[in-house]
Amino acid sequence: MTNMMKKLSENIFDKLSMDFLRNQVLKNAYGNDDTVIAKLDPRILLVWYLFFGLVPWFSNNIIFLGGCFLLVAVTTILAKVAGLVLFLFLVGVFSQTGYLFLVSLFFGGNAETIIPLLVLTLKVATVSLASITVFSGLDPDRLSNGLMWFGCPERLSFSISYAYRILPMLMEEFQNVLLSYRLRGKAPESNGFIGKIKYLVYQIQVIIHSFYPLMLNTAKRSRTTVEALEMRGYRYAATNKEVKKMKLSALKITYDDLLFLAVSFLWMAIVAVVMSYM
């Protein structure tokens, strides 16, 4: 039994290793650029998201919410989102409404509380999945172009593309610094409850301390990056409408985009029919 526990915790530890996290994040960011969702026009997807990201908050009809939920669940599958993100989604939904449910029982609630909470859960789940579909499923560049088309500040769309560029480098650097601590440092024994707490405190300390070298290393990098940006006309482009137009002219709406909207609409219309006959 203890052996099994040990194996289990080892397994979980392995899963939570930096390497695994890094891989999952990269997979989510870059690994699904050939899906149906990734090929859609970002503007269409953003409009689509505007509906499924907002409307569920304002409806309390279980059928309607269930219909929305099913649709976004399908699109999430189509977007081939990384496993970890889905796991986070589940944890997130539970922690947002699950604990409310328990607490309201504690304060003298009853089974009737379940219905509003189910409604709340569906809302949260639908909105989260819609955002996972759009933001994880879309190519970073297409996403930032889409946002720019809707008038988001240029700085934001630059940040998105840059973040996708810099992420693997930052993670590797962070990983190396943490490894230095792991090899040269000495973690306390993690036996017993007190030991576990001590171990946790040590880990947190290490993470905080590792930001000292990270800040300095990243500062060095940032300088080169910004100098290069100056030379490559970043600021020139930020104030030039012509450039924006050029960038956005790459966006094209295809039949696939319209089809995607039409199918979504068809599904919601069917839901409306069901609603009216129930």
Binding site: G53, S128, S131, A163
Partner: peptide, 20 residues
């Protein structure tokens, strides 16, 4: 602004946890 943007971009948009 950098901090707020960083959080928005890395943890919300990149992981698809954007909460509207």
């Amino acid at each position: 602004l950098g901090a707020a943007t960083g959080e928005l971009v890395f943890s919300e948009i990149m992981l698809g946890q954007f909460g509207g």
